[in-house]
Amino acid sequence: MGWRLIRFYTILVYLFMFLPIAVVVLLSFNANQFGSFPMTGLSTRWFEALWNNEAIMRAFRTSIVLGLMTAAISTVLGVLASLALVRYQIPGRNMITTLLIAPILVPEVVLAVALLLFLNFLDIGKSFTLLLAGHVIFTLPFVILVVQARLISIRRDVEEAALSLGASPMQTFLKITLPQLMPAVAAGGLFAFTISFDDITGTLFWKPGGVETVPTQIFSMLRNSISPEINALGTVIIVLTVGLPLIGAALARRLATKSGG
């Protein structure tokens, strides 16, 4: 197979990945009232409609609060667990690692059913608490994988130097380990937020009636038909989900070069 052929094939794969997304963005600026082709002109009316749609704005607020809380809890749990796994010799480490990433291996729908039924048994019905618990479990393995990978590359001897100079383990962690770990903590938190913000399968099982997150709101709007408003919402999400990690990565790089100086 010639190199040029492979390159051509790869370009087609990229087009396959990006064309549908580009069409969403294009159609969201469509002046046509059905939000479909042909394009009759450019307009921002669908974004205005979005802004004035109380249900969507409420879903946005729910998703953001849920995402932030999920990210906070998952990141704290994930960083602590990663420290233990990387910095200490513990028996049964492989088994513990497998256990900690198990939520990735269990199909989400099974995880959703198990958690729903068990917490219901404990008299915790469909609620924000259930939603939060589910999202934490679902995002925790990703945080652990990201933080662990970073932690392995942080040299141990700097920490040991601090300890031998009389710093307490807590001081060493706060002054030496944590600053170097910050990019991974930020990446893990962002990862958790994005996964939580994007989650739909588990959320559909766990959410109480009347509460919608952004994906479930889109899902219920899709039941009727695809409206230009959904494309506009898609564009907003695309800008947020692509823009946020890029800003995050840029920030992380600046932090890294500063502290690495």
């Binding site: 549908p20 997304i21 913000f197 739909i200 994906p215 889109i218 695809i226 919402l233 989900t241």
Partner: peptide
């Protein structure tokens, strides 16, 4: 990018 957005994008 949101899974549901990417899925519904094929309707377009």
């Amino acid at each position: 990018i949101s899974y549901i957005i990417r899925t519904m994008s094929w309707i377009n």
